[in-house]
């Protein structure tokens, strides 16, 4: 029973840790499926988290924080779009630029506005997305096996957690069952064909990039207002890149993205849990190895040792109309 409880706790923190990855990876999915590579997920997420923390601290409302995060993050996504769609700049370079601008300006502005060393003031309960208790969670917690699963694992998360997991089937539906999704995928594979059909490649890609901005804003909001109570400097700590890894790991498909994020979230939760304690058979595993594992797995996958990750065909290539 004790082992079971530990497992439930471990899975619970897995869910919590994988949510920001899930938002960010789904964000990247829209952009990259439309042929715009985005290594600026990290930066947009960070800017979103800062906007959420700052706006919630000033207004005292979580929803205002969410709006601010989405606005800022969409703005940065549009900068990326402006550079890589309108001006046909190098998408990688543009993404790198976004990351640096976000990393620097969140600290500078945070210090200038709140003078707390780059943090935003702690927000109260109204400024956060608190835990939602599903009906009968307390009443059922006594039921063996299913009780803890329901009351601890399924219940007691913030609204954003449920939203993140609902976005998985939603994204699948958008991508594979709507006209917009079909065109989005087409523009990522063969923009010339889409252009020939009389559909604007640029406008489609802009819409995809806006979707990315909205979702990275949600990821940032989750970090600042659900997982924590305010923005802390550099709080994304490479999650944008792990999300990118998850996206590649899932071969740019929504449902596998969820499992990849859960896997990387589990690795994270697991390494926090076992810190220092030896494992059976393997012995003591260095924390650093566990931290590096998502990256190592992605490299191995990219090299084609476990399946093959083939990116959208037109990814990274700006579209030039023949003149």
């Amino acid at each position: 029973m004790d082992l079971f409880n530990t497992l439930v706790l471990l899975l619970d923190s897995t869910v919590r840790l994988s949510v920001p990855l899930l938002f960010a990876a789904l964000a990247g999915l829209y952009s990259e499926r439309s042929g715009v590579f985005d290594i600026g997920l990290e930066g947009k997420m960070l800017a979103g988290a800062f906007a959420a923390g700052a706006a919630a601290a000033v207004s005292g409302s979580a929803w205002v924080g969410l709006m601010a995060a989405v606005l800022v993050s969409v703005f940065m996504a549009l900068v990326h779009g402006f550079a890589s769609i309108t001006h046909r700049g190098n998408q990688i370079v543009s993404g790198v630029a976004i990351n640096f601008i976000a990393a620097g300006s969140t600290i500078i502005l945070g210090q200038a506005w709140f003078s707390q060393g780059g943090r935003t003031p702690l927000v109260g309960a109204a400024g956060r997305f608190g835990a939602i208790h599903l009906p009968f969670a307390d009443a059922l917690s006594g039921v063996p096996v299913l009780g803890p699963l329901y009351s601890q694992l399924l219940s007691g998360h913030s609204l954003l957690v449920y939203l993140a997991f609902l976005l998985v089937p939603f994204t699948w539906w958008v991508l594979f069952r709507t006209r917009f999704g079909l065109r989005l995928r087409a523009v990522g594979e063969n923009p010339a064909a889409v252009d020939t059909a009389g559909i604007s490649v640029q406008w489609l890609r802009y819409r995809a990039v806006i979707c990315t901005g909205v979702l990275t804003g949600l990821a940032g909001t989750y970090l600042a207002l659900a997982q924590n109570a305010g923005f802390v400097k550099d709080m994304t700590a490479g999650r944008g890149f792990i999300a990118l890894a998850a996206l590649i790991f899932a071969k740019w498909r929504p449902v596998p993205v969820m499992f990849a994020c859960l896997l990387f979230g589990f690795l994270d939760a697991f390494s926090i849990r076992i810190q220092g304690t030896p494992l059976p058979l393997i012995g003591r595993v260095p924390v650093q190895f566990m931290q590096a594992l998502p990256y190592i797995l992605t490299v191995v996958l990219l090299a084609g040792f476990i399946g093959r990750a083939i990116p959208p065909r037109a990814g990274g290539v700006p579209y030039v109309k023949e003149r």
């Binding site: 998408q91 630029a97 601008i101």
Partner: peptide
Amino acid sequence: IIQGLVILFAGAL
């Protein structure tokens, strides 16, 4: 920030 802006304007844009 400056570094990011230089990368943006001298690189991507």
